[in-house]
Simulated scan of single mutants.
Amino acid sequence: MARNLEFNEDEVIQKAMEVFWRKGYAATSMRDLTDAMQINISSLYNSIGDKHELFIRCIRHYTNGRIQSAQKRVANFDSPFAALESFINDAAKTIVSEPNSCLCVKATFETEGCDPEVQKAINEYNDHVHQFIKRMVENAQEAGEIAAHEDADIIADYLDSLFTGWYNSFIMHKDGQRILKMAGLSIRQLKQ
């Protein structure tokens, strides 16, 4: 007879994610994880798996939360361009307010793209974000708010690369105003 889990899996994944986010994958020990999650190691192995599997699940938990949050935020705009503008500003504000940078950016740099499972989870998220941005751009083009001759795919790539660059800039310079000004510039460029 299977034993009932004695913990809420979403809650313990969130706690583990915060440890990985703060310390990074390599520096996080199983002890760090079980202490934060408040479960014993056998429960962790039996219900979730090893450290690597937990890390993948934490990345997916993080990315799913970001996707849901973005979808909710942009759903309330009448203007497609206003939704896109809000998304860009929210990205900039998140970059300057997250104390540990983006978990995906951090994981990519730490694993140097050499962990296929980590890279797959991050690539799936990036693909989703790309399509999400592309749809917003296409909606703004249909509404006449962005020039119709511009390639929505390229605009989505452009914005995604800007976000990554903003993370790098903020990590190096810790200048939040610089990031917010770059967000404003990107919005003005899209209006032209």
Rank of each mutant, 00 (worst) to 15 (best):
L180W: 05
F55Q: 00
T63S: 14
D35A: 13
N40S: 03
L54V: 03
W21C: 03
V137K: 05
H130E: 06
Q71T: 02
D35K: 05
G49M: 02
A82R: 04
Q38N: 06
S43V: 02
N64I: 02
R178T: 08
K106Y: 05
L162G: 01
N168D: 10
C114M: 12
K23S: 01
M172R: 10
D175C: 04
D127Q: 12
E142I: 03
M1K: 04
S161P: 11
V12T: 05
I48Y: 03
A82Y: 00
E85C: 10
K72V: 14
E124P: 01
S43P: 04
K191E: 14
S69H: 11
T94Q: 08
I133M: 12
I59H: 07
I154V: 13
F163L: 13
A183P: 12
V96K: 04
N64F: 08
H149I: 08
L5F: 03
H130T: 12
I39Y: 00
K174Q: 12
S97G: 11
E142N: 14
I146V: 15
G65M: 12
L33S: 03
N89W: 07
S79P: 00
L180Q: 09
I59R: 05
H130V: 13
E18K: 09
Q131T: 11
D10P: 00
T63M: 06
R66I: 07
G184D: 15
N168V: 14
M172L: 15
D32M: 05
M1D: 08
I155V: 14
P99W: 03
A148R: 07
F163G: 09
P80L: 12
K191W: 14
D10N: 03
D157F: 11
Y125W: 15
N46M: 14
A183H: 09
S169M: 14
I39L: 00
H128Y: 15
N126R: 15
R135P: 11
S186I: 02
I146K: 06
A143N: 09
D157A: 06
I41W: 04
V12N: 01
A26N: 07
P80Y: 11
K134H: 13
V129H: 04
A83M: 09
M172C: 10
F55S: 00
P80R: 13
E98N: 15
D90Q: 10
C104W: 06
K51L: 09
V118Q: 05
E117N: 14
Y125C: 04
K93N: 13
A147M: 07
H149G: 01
H52I: 06
Q71M: 15
L103C: 11
I95P: 09
L159S: 06
A107Q: 08
P99C: 04
N139M: 08
L185S: 07
D50W: 03
E9S: 03
G176Y: 02
S161Y: 11
L44R: 01
E9P: 01
K120D: 09
A92V: 10
R3D: 07
L159D: 08
F77E: 05
K51E: 04
Q131A: 12
A92Y: 05
E11F: 00
S29T: 01
Q189R: 12
Q38T: 02
I122V: 15
A92G: 12
I187T: 13
K181C: 02
K181L: 12
C102W: 08
K23H: 04
N100D: 11
Y125N: 10
A121I: 08
K51I: 01
E98V: 08
N64Q: 14
N8H: 12
H128E: 07
G113L: 13
P80Q: 10
